[in-house]
């Protein structure tokens, strides 16, 4: 009975050690919304694109975590913006996502925001994610403000 108990305790200790290791790898991670994806003024029937590298208009979030942290980025992308009693189509291209170690998109690496992407903080403890897109107001699109939520989910994969 003692031996069984001791074995069980040993397993418990191993598992707790394992937990400790994983917990150490699961570093803290902070996600901050920085800026909306802003198309500005649009005319009915005239599509408009915002490039991810357009600092003043692209959607931006910032992720902060210790060096070496791996994480997964997943966007929940809307297909329309909601406006005054109607919607306006919204699309995203395969290079509309971008990630850079600073808030400057000049060095960003592009990716497809429609698919989950894995990143690692290699040179800095922060990364900025940029998002572009394309809005296509119809001919006769009612005037007014349109908006849609873009949800960015970051999953911490540890160091």
């Amino acid at each position: 009975m003692y031996r069984v108990t001791a074995f069980a305790r040993l397993i418990t200790c191993c598992c707790v050690l394992s937990l400790a290791t994983v917990a150490q790898g699961q570093t803290s991670l902070t996600v901050r919304p920085i800026q909306n994806l802003s198309f500005g003024f649009l005319l009915p029937g005239v599509p408009s694109s915002v490039d991810a590298a357009t600092v003043t208009r692209s959607g931006q979030i910032q992720v902060e975590a210790p060096l070496g942290t791996n994480f997964q980025v997943r966007y929940t992308l809307p297909t329309v913006m909601n406006g005054p009693g109607t919607t306006m189509p919204l699309t995203f291209g395969t290079t509309d996502g971008g990630a850079a170690p600073t808030a400057n998109p000049a060095s960003m690496q592009r990716f497809n925001p429609a698919t989950a992407t894995r990143w690692q903080l290699v040179t800095t403890t922060r990364a900025t994610f940029f998002l572009g897109g394309r809005a296509a107001p119809r001919v006769g699109q009612p005037v007014g403000g349109y908006t849609a939520p873009i949800i960015v989910t970051i999953t911490n994969l540890g160091v």
Binding site: T30, P33, S38, L42, S48, G59, Y146, T153, T155
Partner: peptide, 20 residues
């Protein structure tokens, strides 16, 4: 519990104003 990974999320908006 150790095997679980947690996700954090942030929400931004896409915005536009259709004008005459």
């Amino acid at each position: 519990a150790a095997g679980a990974v947690q996700g954090q999320s942030a929400t931004i908006a896409a915005t536009a104003t259709v004008v005459t």
